[in-house]
Amino acid sequence: MCILCGEFIMQVHWTDYTDSTDTEITVGNQQRIRQRSRLHRANLCNQLLSHYRLTLEEWNGSKFILRDAKGNAEIVHDLGTIWHHVEAMIGYPIDPLDGSLLDKITERSSAQ
């Protein structure tokens, strides 16, 4: 259970499993590594979400906040739920196999 918001977390998403056999992270212990990896995740997501004019912000090592340019915001727990929120915000399905998305990514990387 999240001690900040009281949310009952039923499922650990597969992307959140680490090589550590510890099931809990205590304050200070691995906190920096965990926070760094969350910021890295937010950064990578932003590179992708910028194609949809959305941003993702890491929030207190606990949640992510997904925002659009109109000021709408959604609290996102993990990568298991982010894509549902993204689709709800932009109003159409997203797909990494979508040719136009791949073209945009290629175009931007070649421009850099």
Binding site: H13, W14, T15, S37, H40, R41, L44, C45, L48, L79, G80, I82, W83, H84, P93, I94, D95, P96, L97
Partner: peptide, 14 residues
């Protein structure tokens, strides 16, 4: 982390 991002998006859509 990047791989998780890609695969989770792929599995979400397909």
């Amino acid at each position: 982390t990047a791989f998780g991002l890609w695969l989770s998006m792929l599995l979400h859509a397909n």
